[in-house]
């Protein structure tokens, strides 16, 4: 459903991505791994329209979305849950979730989607009237994912969902992510927690220096000697 071809992205004169190509299929979970500064977040930002590639193309459901605005891309059904959560701190949890639904169809089905979100994250329902800025890091991550679901995405992109969370919370978050994928949403996950990410995904890409260094089914990557040594410390 998503096809990125030969994408070059620059920050000013600095090249961040070199000919990155990747695909995400219908219902598929794909992880993108690599160390800091290798271009993982940049890849997601380009797909969600925050950055525009200088070369290459991005197609989604057969449509060229390379030059579309972030808003138009959300409307088409791609939801990007950014690194650092980026919730609205002075808005309540409820208002944050409401803000996740910006377009007629998601707004119409808002109440229903919100019930689904509370199903995944009962904690959010308890804190509905609380300001998002007063939530713990884990709760903010839940809120960010919940907010991302409110737009009824067909493809959800998660940037470092486990960053800064306690091991127990990491387990919880990944369980929920797995549940979300079982509901039929395609997922693209960026993670430093390579083991977890590969465990719940079908395929993985390894980014190094802004280019795809390695790709393959997750099971193969988990047993790949380079991945084990570089990212799993084995």
């Amino acid at each position: 459903m998503l096809e990125v071809k030969g994408m070059d992205v620059y920050y000013g004169d600095l090249q961040a991505l070199r000919g990155v190509s990747l695909t995400v299929g219908e219902g598929e979970v794909v992880s993108v791994i690599g160390s800091n500064g290798m271009g993982k977040s940049t890849t997601l930002k380009a797909i969600s329209g925050l950055l525009h590639p200088r070369r290459g193309s991005i197609h989604y459901l057969g449509r060229d979305i390379t030059r579309l605005s972030p808003s138009a891309i959300v409307e088409l059904g791609i939801s990007h849950v950014p690194e650092g959560r980026q919730v609205f701190p002075s808005l309540t949890v409820l208002e944050n979730l409401q803000m996740g639904a910006q377009f007629p169809e998601p707004i119409r089905r808002g109440a229903q989607t919100m019930e689904q979100v509370f199903d995944y994250f009962p904690r959010l329902k308890e804190r509905l009237e609380q300001k998002a800025g007063t939530l713990s890091g884990g709760e903010q991550q839940m809120l960010a994912i919940g907010r991302g679901l409110m737009s009824l995405p067909k493809l959800m992109m998660l940037d470092e969902p486990s960053l800064g969370l306690s091991p127990l919370l990491v387990e919880t978050i990944f369980e929920i992510i797995h549940k979300i994928s079982q509901q039929g949403t395609s997922l693209q996950i960026i993670e430093q927690n390579v083991h977890h990410a590969l465990c719940i995904s079908h395929r993985g890409y390894v980014l190094e220096d802004g280019a795809v260094a390695l790709l393959g089914p997750s099971q193969e990557l988990l047993s790949d000697p380079h991945v084990c040594k570089a990212y799993l410390g084995l």
Binding site: S48, L50, S69, P70, S71, V74, E75, S79, H80, V81, P82, Q86, V87, F88, P89, S90, L91, E95, Q98, M99, G100, Q102, F103, R147, G148, M150, S151
Partner: peptide, 20 residues
């Protein structure tokens, strides 16, 4: 009004939920 407050709170977050 809520969109205005959201954009004031976090511009990146506002862009990513699809607020123009």
């Amino acid at each position: 009004g809520k969109r205005i407050r959201a954009a004031a709170d976090n511009r990146l977050g506002a862009q990513l939920v699809g607020i123009k």
